[in-house]
Each structure stands twice: as structure tokens, then as C-alpha cells.
Design a protein around this nucleic acid. Structure first.
Lengths: 240, 240
DNA sequence: ACTCGATCTTGACGATGTAAAGATAGGGAG
DNA sequence: CTCCCTATCTTTACATCGTCAAGATCGAGT
């Protein structure tokens, strides 16, 4: 009952062990522990994913281990394996959740925009803002090598993210992007936009833009730097 | 003598153990083993770094462990710790070597260019080319979280890389970049260029540009896509 | 009521990073 | 020349991790 894994760190949660010693095994399901810790959790899969997200936000990518997630959820160390098969499986499912959050954040930011200029800037700004608000999740989605894109949920979520980007570029160029064929100019526009924002985000999260920010006029924030980049990029390319 | 670490994989090297059993300890330095495996290696630090580079190229980031490097170098598993203190230490020193290779590749590509347009394209193309030729090393430099930039060698090599970028941008804008102060426009130009190329590289190495490449006219390569991006970016910004 | 299969636990194994203690050799002091 | 000191390298040990196999438990259908 999650009492293996001697954790030398501070006990982060205290759940009473269900049975101290297996000697003279008590009758099954003692009436005292009603819904305390049933052997069958009922919704362990979702609980594990939520626990994983907490662990990720708290301890970062390096702290996201199968056993840590099991501890956080209060189950035995091998329970996650049954539901996800693998660390790759758990990580991939969590990344799919991240992509969905990510897409939702960008969509709602886009919907909020009024002017064409705002609309052009809203998506990349929401992109960076999400990554700053959820650095662990963004690292999970774009830094980890243990992602299995053959999993339908992850594949679909990532695909949807790409489609949103392509559509935004198409709208800006006033030429709707067809699903299956692109000109080199269209592909270059999409790849350039994505590369720029993704690269900016990675460099920012890694602290590698500090060199630049410190040399800028005092008080310039990363958001202002991003805005300057975007405005100079989008200049003259807006319809009307 | 590196005969611990029962490696369940195929034995990658066969170095005869110096002593099978410590019973009846033989005289120190038996004349038979001349320069075979001296207890003191002499240049273990450099040998470990070279071994680490081989392991990285062969087994990728996930395979780069202290013990694997020690095996590759033919020493005991704790030997690297003495020279680098830590896995972070070894990884950081190797990343410093990577940054130096990286800078050299970009510099020589820049020197080779003749026309202004070539010069503007040479550096980013060399950037991506290096990453494609050394994906393990590039991942070590930009994907790992275990880098210690307080180490002088890494700090200096990374700083030099940034300085080269800033100078290239300054040359293109025809306004030499001063070392300690930047206008927002200058900072935006530098961050934009770096973000674009870095993001492109990461997406390319992660296979995330495949979606785009497959929709492009048949046979379009990543290099051609990059060139299209660069040309549309640099258009009209070249002096004369 | 009873079995069967899904769910969860227990235990084990090899691998890893890291610390501590022991072995070895090279080089300087006497 | 001899002896010892210190840097270098090995050995041993421990906690943690992912993963597998076997056992325990429970819900649901016959």
C-alpha cells in the first residue's frame, strides 16, 4: 500500500497504511475504512494523470517518475504501469493533455482579439504565455525524447495544434491553406512562424535570452521583446 | 578494474582484467603489462571526454551516463566522478567542447562566403548543418537541463557563440553592436534571428517539420525549406 | 453463488548517480 | 637513495529508478 519506496525526503503526504502487518489477515473490507482506500480505485487513470501534472509542476521534468506519480496518487509503485504500460506511455498521455490546454489557450486568445493586428499577435503571445505559465508542461511537450506520437490521443492533440497554426498563417496571408498540399512559400511561412515562436520560447525558458534582456533599456521585459520581434516581422504583411 | 557493471549487452570491448583474484597479490607493476593498463591513466580527463563524445554519438543523450562513459574509456565506474564531480560536470564540459566545434563550423562557413547574400545565409545554414551532423551534441547543448553555466569553460564557449551571432546581426544591419548596450530594435533583431534558427533546428531534429515537408512539392528537402525561409526573411534587409 | 477477468500490490532484478573508503603510483623532501 | 604525501583510480555500498512476474482483491456477469 504505497509503503515501499522509502522516501528519504520529507514525507509529503501521510496516508495511513491499510494494514500494518499481514499477520492474521483481517476480514476483507473492514467496515471502519468505508471509502478510505479501496483496493480498486475506480478512476485511477485520471487520478494518476492529475497526480503527474502536480508532480511535474512541483518537481519539474526530472522529478516526473513513475514511482513519484504513484506516491503522489497514493498507490503502489507499479500501479501506473498497468494503465500506461510504460513511462513513455504516461508521459505521452500527459503531453496530450498539455497540447489540449495549449490549443485551448491559443484559441481563446485568438477569439478575444478585435483588430487584425491584435489577431496576428494574439496567438504567438498566448503561445509564449502558456509556456511561461506551465514551463514543466511545455518542456514535457517539446523537450522530452520519450514521447510516443503513435498514441492516438497525443497524435491528435499535436496535429490539432499544427492545424491551428497553419490556419492562422493562411488567414494572415489571405489564402486558405489546403489540408494536403502547400507551396514552398506557404510552407516557409508556416515553418518560419512556428520556428520563431518555438525557438523564442525555448531560449526564454532556458534563460538564454537573459544576455539580451540585460543589455536592453532597463526594465524591458521578455514580453516587450517578443512584441518588438512580432511587430517587425508582421510589418507590411497585414492585409489592408 | 571495470569488471563490475555486469553489462547485459554485447561486450563492447575486451580488456583483460589486471588481476583475477587478489589472493597472493603479485608484485606491483608486473613487467608483462608494460603500458597495458597503468593504474594512473595519465590523461584520463581528455580520454573520458572523447569517450563521452563517442557514447553520445552512438547511443544518444539517453545513453550518455557516467558509467557508460567509464566503460567506454575502460576505467572503473567511479573514475569520471573524480574528474568532473558530477554527471552535470561531465555533461557541461562536453557541451563546452560542442559549443567550440559549433562556433568553429559557423566561423569557417562565414569566411567561405563571398557575396553579401551568401554571407547572410552562410551562418544559419551552418548552424542547422552542424545540428544535423551532430544531433547528439546539439541536444546536449540545447535540450539537456543538466548544464552548469557557472563552469568557466561552458560559460565562455556559450558566450562566444552568442557574440558571433550578435556581430553577424550587427554587420547585416550595418551598425556594429556594442558589447554592453542594445536598443530594443537591435535586441529584437538578434533574438528573432536566433529564435528562428534555433526553433527550426529543434523542430527539424524532433521530426516535427515532417508534416510540412510532406505537403511540399515532392522532393523538397529541409535545406531548401530553410533557404526559402531565410531568403524571405532577409529580403530587402541587405545593404545595397 | 461462483467464477473470471480487470485492477492493484508485492517482490525482485538490473541499471544509474553518488558517497566513502581502500589501493596505487608518481614526485618531492629529507 | 629512501620514504612519505597526495592525486589518481578502484571497490564497495546505498538509494532510486523502470520494468517484469507473480500474487491478492474485487466487481460483474452467468
Amino acid at each position: 500500500m504505497a509503503k515501499s519506496d522509502t522516501k528519504s525526503e520529507t514525507a509529503r503526504f501521510a496516508r495511513p497504511p491499510r494494514k500494518l502487518l499481514p499477520a492474521s489477515r483481517p476480514a476483507r473490507r473492514p467496515a471502519s475504512a468505508k471509502a478510505e482506500t479501496p483496493y480498486h480505485h475506480g478512476a485511477l487513470r485520471e487520478a494518476l494523470l492529475q497526480a503527474a501534472e502536480r508532480v511535474l509542476e512541483r518537481d519539474g521534468l526530472a522529478g516526473l517518475t513513475l514511482r513519484a506519480v504513484a506516491r503522489e496518487a497514493g498507490v503502489s509503485h507499479a500501479a501506473p504501469t498497468h494503465h500506461f504500460g510504460d513511462l513513455t506511455g504516461l508521459v505521452s498521455e500527459l503531453a496530450a493533455i498539455g497540447f489540449r490546454q495549449f490549443n485551448a489557450a491559443m484559441s481563446s486568445a485568438c477569439d478575444m482579439a478585435t483588430s487584425p493586428l491584435e489577431r496576428a499577435l494574439a496567438r504567438p503571445k498566448a503561445y509564449v504565455a502558456y509556456a511561461q505559465a506551465h514551463p514543466g508542461m511545455y518542456g514535457l511537450m517539446f523537450r522530452t525524447e520519450r514521447l510516443d506520437y503513435s498514441r492516438p490521443s497525443l497524435h491528435e492533440a499535436a496535429e490539432s495544434s499544427f492545424a491551428g497554426l497553419a490556419n492562422a498563417i493562411g488567414a494572415m496571408r489571405q489564402e486558405p491553406i489546403s489540408g494536403d498540399a502547400l507551396t514552398v512559400e506557404q510552407g516557409a511561412a508556416i515553418a518560419r512562424a512556428w520556428s520563431m515562436v518555438h525557438g523564442f520560447t525555448m531560449l526564454l525558458l532556458d534563460g538564454r535570452l537573459e544576455d539580451i534582456l540585460q543589455r536592453l533599456p532597463a526594465g524591458t521585459t521578455a514580453e516587450q521583446l517578443l512584441e518588438a520581434i512580432l511587430k517587425s516581422t508582421v510589418a507590411g504583411k497585414l492585409p489592408c
